[in-house]
Structures are given as structure tokens and as C-alpha cells.
Amino acid sequence: MSLSLDHIVIRVQDLEHTIAHFSALGFTVQRGGTHADGATHNALIGLADGSYFELIAFLRDARTHRWWDENNRVGDGFVDYALLPQSVAATIEAARERGLAYNGPIAGGRLRPDGERLEWQLGTPHSADLPFLCGDVTPRRLRVAEGEVRRHANGARGVRNLTLVVNDLDASLVRYRALLGDVDAQRAPLPGYGVEIAILPLGTTTLTLLSPSRGALERAEGLAADVREYLATRGEGVFAVSLETHPGGTSRAFDSALTHGATLELVAGS
């Protein structure tokens, strides 16, 4: 059963400031609306490959919410990502048959600013290294707008690579194979960097799992130090995203002050 990237979540404190900042970076930002529980509201950045970024902020205290950040301890940045299944229930059942437990299907929804009510189903994992599932009940075009809103002045067209940091590369690979089915995960050692990586295909996107090398010195530098610090402060999850632009386009990193701590780069298409 095929799964594709649905969206990547960036939690922020102030949604209005975030909309202004991403707009200044050349992204077309759409106001999303308020979620059904009244705890959060969002804005979206839709991409031509069908995926999108969700910029989400809390409207009230919500200590039981999976993305709640008590006293802004961790701060803005990536908090999660979602895969799009043909059926949430069928995907959960298939994963369970392969030994991986997911909660759900769980009803979800949002009221758009124009009054349109959206409904979807969720499946949530038991470990932070895995994505949640988000499958539409109402037509997906209502949740993820099509057309000109997917065009961006900076040239971003889609997600080429999503990098995740995990504590145990082998354990995470077992879970991802159970979720995605028979995928060809390529291990790619990085001698001298103090990290291990594995690359998995996900439709037009690739997933890169990144973990500290076993037996590596605790006093790490460079990439290894960044990975260890991220795991210590934010835990397992989305670490960086590479967006593709048109062939011959200019590759560049976006200012992290304007992306609210999310590491984003633009790379030229092939």
C-alpha cells in the first residue's frame, strides 16, 4: 500500500509574524483556519508536488496536545510530519500485521476562514521517529488548495529530501519497513562524521534517517554534535528539509531566523 509525503509541521508562537516571515522568503502562504478542538490555528504553504508545510500555533493551553511546548521550553521549529494513505484504517491494519502498532483511525477537522469545514482521519505512532497518518474524509483539494497558491516567488516546487534524526538507526529502520512495506533502505556510512545514515524512497521524496554512530566519542563536533544536541533538546524527528527548484536554479539555505528555527534549503532540480 503506497504512502506519500502529506505535510511537514512547523510549530510557532506567533502565526501572524510567521506568515510575514515566510512570505518575505518568497513563499505563497495561505491562511488555514482553526482546528476542531479550538486549540490551534494554522497557515499552509502548498507545493507543486502535492505536499505542504503547516505553520501551526496554539490559541490556548493544551497540555495533552502532542505538539504542546510547556512554557516555550523548546521553541519554534519542526515538530512532526505526516504521510498520506489511501485509507488510514487499512494502513494501520497492514502495519499491525507487520508488527507495528498505530493508534486510530482518529477523527480530525478544521474550519477554514471561508466557512468550509474539513474532515480527515489520523493515525498516530507509538514512537517519535515515525510520522503520523493523515487521510482525507472530505476532498483533499479542500484541505490542500491547488493552482496558483502552489507557485512561489523563490522557485520552490517540492520536497526533495526530508532528514530525520533518530536515536537508534537499526530500530527505526525496522519500524519504517513495517510501516512502508518492502522498501529498499540504503545504508550509507559517513566515515569521520560520527553519524550513520540510511536513505529510504518515499514517492518523489527521499527520507534520510540520521543517527549518532555507535561507539562514537561523546565529545563530538560538526554534524555529529548538531545531531546529539538536537536529540537532547527536541528529541527524534524532522531535522532538515531540502526543497527542489527548477533545473539551473540557485541553491541556497533560508535564513533560520525567518524560518523560525526550521532548517530549510533550496536545491536545483535535475
Rank of each mutant, 00 (worst) to 15 (best):
Y102I: 09
L47D: 05
G215V: 14
L180G: 02
V74W: 04
A220V: 10
D184Y: 00
S87N: 02
V9N: 04
L100V: 09
G46Y: 12
L122S: 03
L111I: 11
L209W: 04
G123R: 06
V238L: 10
V227K: 08
P189M: 08
A62I: 00
G192S: 10
L266R: 12
D76E: 15
T206E: 13
I92E: 00
P125V: 13
A90W: 00
E97R: 15
T163I: 09
A257G: 07
E196L: 01
V183R: 03
R160D: 13
P85V: 02
R160T: 08
Q86L: 11
I56Q: 00
R228M: 05
G108H: 01
C134T: 07
G215L: 13
A90L: 01
E70P: 05
N161L: 13
D184C: 01
V159R: 03
L179S: 02
R187I: 12
I92M: 08
A232V: 03
F78E: 05
R98T: 02
A48K: 15
V165Y: 07
P189V: 08
A128I: 04
Q121V: 03
D129K: 09
V79H: 10
A95R: 04
A185M: 02
G248A: 09
R150S: 06
H152Y: 13
F254D: 01
L55T: 00
R110L: 13
P212C: 09
E146T: 14
G135T: 11
R98Q: 09
P191S: 11
Y230D: 05
L111G: 02
V241E: 02
V195H: 11
S256D: 10
Y193P: 00
H260E: 15
A145L: 14
L44W: 06
L84D: 13
V166M: 10
R157I: 06
T233P: 01
P113I: 08
G235P: 05
D69A: 03
S211G: 04
A107D: 09
F132W: 12
I8T: 15
G46A: 12
I92P: 06
V166P: 01
T204V: 10
T206A: 09
L3I: 12
A39L: 06
I8W: 00
I106W: 00
W120Q: 00
A101H: 11
V195D: 08
A48S: 14
I10D: 08
